[in-house]
């Protein structure tokens, strides 16, 4: 990125500027469609204060079934675009949030709306079920 901005200063040709805009656009697009990683630090801002519904998967590296949820979430994130936020939270690393919510089984999937638990489910779910959970 730095390289691009530095070149921008030197080279003011219009096509270059457009190219940079395109790259930034692509990056933003990628960011909006990815599976977020939620932590104790960003949970309030990213999940509870979010303007859109947020689906959080509570998972852990040692949890077999959780590994099967990852591709489903990636797929879901591509489908919902900016209508919802999709992410996961590691219950070992970020145990404060997991404990606070009383997570005792993983994978647990919770949809937060307006800072509150909207719906939750335990176990691996299909993309369609998760969409319904998000009311999408």
């Amino acid at each position: 990125m730095m390289m691009i901005f530095m070149s921008l200063k030197i080279n003011v040709k219009r096509w270059y500027f457009l190219a940079v805009l395109f790259i930034i656009g692509m990056l933003t697009y990628e960011v909006e469609n990815m599976v977020h990683t939620f932590t104790t630090n960003n949970f309030d801002a990213e999940v509870l204060q979010s303007n859109v519904p947020v689906l959080v998967e509570f998972w852990a590296t040692w949890c077999g079934p959780c590994q099967r949820v990852a591709p489903i979430l990636e797929d879901l994130a591509k489908d919902v675009l900016d209508a919802a936020k999709i992410g996961k939270l590691d219950v070992d690393e970020e145990y404060e949030v997991a404990d606070e919510l009383g997570i005792m089984s993983i994978p647990t999937l919770i949809v937060f709306k307006n800072g509150k638990v909207h719906q939750s489910t335990i176990g691996v779910q299909s993309k369609e079920t998760l969409k319904k959970l998000l009311d999408l």
């Binding site: 077999g64 949820v69 176990g123 691996v124 779910q125 299909s126």
Partner: peptide, 14 residues
């Protein structure tokens, strides 16, 4: 199946 991470819906294996 659910222990392996199979998708289950309404107690049916998907």
């Amino acid at each position: 199946a659910s222990q392996l991470g199979v998708i289950i819906e309404k107690n049916n294996i998907v």
